[in-house]
Write a protein that binds this DNA or RNA. Structure first.
Lengths: 198, 198
DNA sequence: TGAAAAACGGAGGGCGCCTCCGTATCTGTA
DNA sequence: TACAGATACGGAGGCGCCCTCCGTTTTTCA
């Protein structure tokens, strides 16, 4: 008697192992530094080394380079999306857009890896794993765009995806001397083009 | 006696060896195909294999990936630049610009590697080798821009380099289903933004 | 025709990708 | 506290690519 459980299995969720959590955290920290220094094609083995973890462990936690990227930059993406949502309510549509774009450039200035991450996300659809980042941002942007269009201030044939891609593309000259000014200027031109004539 | 030469050396240019010329040609042909299929990071060993040539030979002819790229796409660049020069004389400035941008997109559609090549050129300055392509295009574009600005049809704070970079960036969503339409639309928006307000 | 110059080609050392599986560690139960 | 099963670890190993180096082959020129 007292043998209460017996088949309790299969539906019982164990809590994640402590070492697993610890390693995941270490990997994220290491990846942040390595990507930030070495760009999007930095060596994953270097990440594992820096984390003090076997390469197998890295791959178990993050099956693809993309997955690791996304995990590293998810927080940034969330913030960016949150800002868009806030601006959609608090500012005039066109201003909201300009402010958000400015914030984006600002962010890229400090977290260069993010641009690479999002660009990967924006590329080929095969990267199913990226859905999160890209969706999150386009959805948030959509709020701003819809209002601007409804207010008759912006042309209606540009989707949030278009805008995001354009933004990513235009930002791609980062890594040059005066890039930030240049990119800001280019984005300004683009926004001017978005505004309804007159 | 009869020993006429003796120190004739050092200033005498021999004609290039026939096999060298032949191999160079083969490599260019192979590279064109391989880059076009595999994108900018295609394997150089694959190029050598396809050319039926040793890897050492490839490296002797083209010491860097960039050098090979440039050699492959130099002809295209020249054509593009030539078109810009012609358009600068034959068309209304803004039209000339639109036509040239359209031609660019068209070209990228068939020679995808070119986009990668030019993008590399537009990146970090270290790539001395790219100077040619980038200079050639910006110079040619400058003709169109100058006229448009002089005619009071275009804002004056955008340089040819800016425009080229923007073009490259905006084109970067190629490799997706409907990219050509999208890119054309985005470029259209950008040009609208370039035009002097009303 | 033969010697010197030029070019060839691929082996080899290094590195990164990713998989696979024997071993070590942790968790829940009694 | 002890132990069995579940879970995670780690790195060796196979593969491909990068690039260099040098012994061998081919071509040129006199």
């Amino acid at each position: 008697m007292a043998v209460r459980s017996a088949r309790t299995r299969a539906e019982v969720e164990r809590k994640p192992r402590a070492d697993s959590l610890r390693n995941r955290e270490r990997l994220l920290k290491a990846a942040t530094r390595v990507f930030s220094a070495g760009g999007p094609e930095a060596s994953l083995e270097a990440v594992a080394r820096r984390a003090g973890v076997g390469i197998g462990t890295l791959y178990r936690h993050f099956p693809t380079r993309e997955a690791l990227f996304e995990a590293v930059y998810r927080r940034e993406v969330d913030e960016l999306a949150g800002l868009a949502e806030r601006l959609a309510h608090e500012a005039e549509p066109i201003d909201a857009l300009r402010q958000w774009l400015g914030a984006f450039v600002q962010l890229v200035a400090t977290k260069k890896g993010m641009l690479a991450a999002l660009s990967l996300a924006a590329q080929a659809p095969p990267s199913e794993l990226y859905a999160y980042s890209f969706d999150r941002l386009t959805t948030a942007l959509d709020g701003i765009l819809k209002r601007a269009i409804a207010a008759g201030q912006m042309r209606s044939d540009i989707t949030p995806e278009d805008l995001l891609r354009a933004l990513l593309g235009l930002s791609y000259s980062y890594e040059r001397p005066d890039w930030q000014a240049t990119v800001t200027r280019l984005i300004g031109v683009f926004v001017d083009g978005l505004m309804v004539k007159r």
